[in-house]
């Protein structure tokens, strides 16, 4: 999975490309740690070019979401493809995450 982080003022915009699965999720989590560990962090995950999210990927998203609550931050997911949106809907993630 290709991860590209851009800073837009106070907001970190993370563009993701490829697959967020068992193989790529640990790396994704590691790269994101620096951003989601800060008090009041603002993160946008751009899923425009992301094709797949597995259970392992969902666990990392859940972790970032929990951190955002604990650290008064925010996590927004944008440009979600319909097949990933369906997974979010069926697993209950649509109620947990902020998806635009």
């Amino acid at each position: 999975m290709k991860i590209d982080v851009k800073q837009d003022g106070e907001i970190f915009v993370v563009e993701l490309e490829g697959r967020m699965d068992t193989n790529t999720s640990p790396e994704f989590q590691k790269e994101m740690e620096a951003y989601y560990s800060k008090e009041g962090f603002n993160m946008i995950l751009d899923f425009d070019r992301l094709d797949f999210v597995s259970s392992a990927g969902l666990r990392v998203l859940l972790l970032i979401q929990k951190k955002s609550k604990a650290l008064n931050g925010s996590l927004v997911i944008k440009n979600v493809k319909p097949e990933i949106q369906e997974v979010f809907d069926m697993t209950g993630f649509s109620d947990i995450l902020t998806i635009e």
Binding site: T22, S54, S55, A56, R59, L62, T91
Partner: peptide, 16 residues
Amino acid sequence: FVQEETYALYRDLMIM
């Protein structure tokens, strides 16, 4: 067969 970490994810969700 479910994807790896599916049951761990379910537990994470319940705790959340």
